[in-house]
């Protein structure tokens, strides 16, 4: 069984109540701009105090330092996943493969942890 290239859920708007309802669990997420274009692929790992909830909420708060996310982040979707490390790598590999080896702009503008070493997935 293969996992989908992207998170198979509808986009959500970052309203206060919607953000509060994100579970505090490990997982991966995507951030999109208002047109629904993915601009960031991230993970909520074991050091995140409230898992996906605090990690995603942070991207829509005044404390966000990433200039791309500050300017363009408009929607999000998430996936609870204990294999968050390999799942995020897989999602990033699919993205890079589909975008002429370019990173999501939010990852490219982020820290080294936003740009992990990637392999190449090729489908016959």
């Amino acid at each position: 069984m293969t996992t989908p290239d992207r998170i198979a859920k509808p986009w959500q708007d970052p309203g206060e109540e919607t953000l509060r309802q994100i579970p505090g669990v490990l997982g991966v997420y995507e951030i999109a701009d208002s047109a629904g274009t993915v601009i960031h692929i991230g993970q909520a790992g074991g050091r995140e105090p409230f898992g996906l909830r605090s990690k995603i909420s942070g991207h829509f708060s005044e404390t966000e330092l990433n200039p791309v996310l500050r300017e363009r982040a408009a929607r999000f979707r998430w996936e609870s996943n204990h294999q968050y490390t390999t799942r995020r790598l897989e999602m990033l590999m699919h993205y890079v493969e589909a975008h002429d080896q370019q990173w999501p702009p939010g990852n490219a503008a982020g820290t080294w942890e936003d740009q992990p070493t990637l392999g190449r997935l090729r489908r016959s």
């Binding site: 996992t3 390999t86 799942r87 790598l89 392999g119 016959s124």
Partner: peptide
Amino acid sequence: TDMPGFAVRRVVHTLRAGNYGTELS
């Protein structure tokens, strides 16, 4: 790995994070 017909189809998610496995065709 650049020979025509060789493909890395997917990451195989398991209990481990590092040195993960893949499926090839």
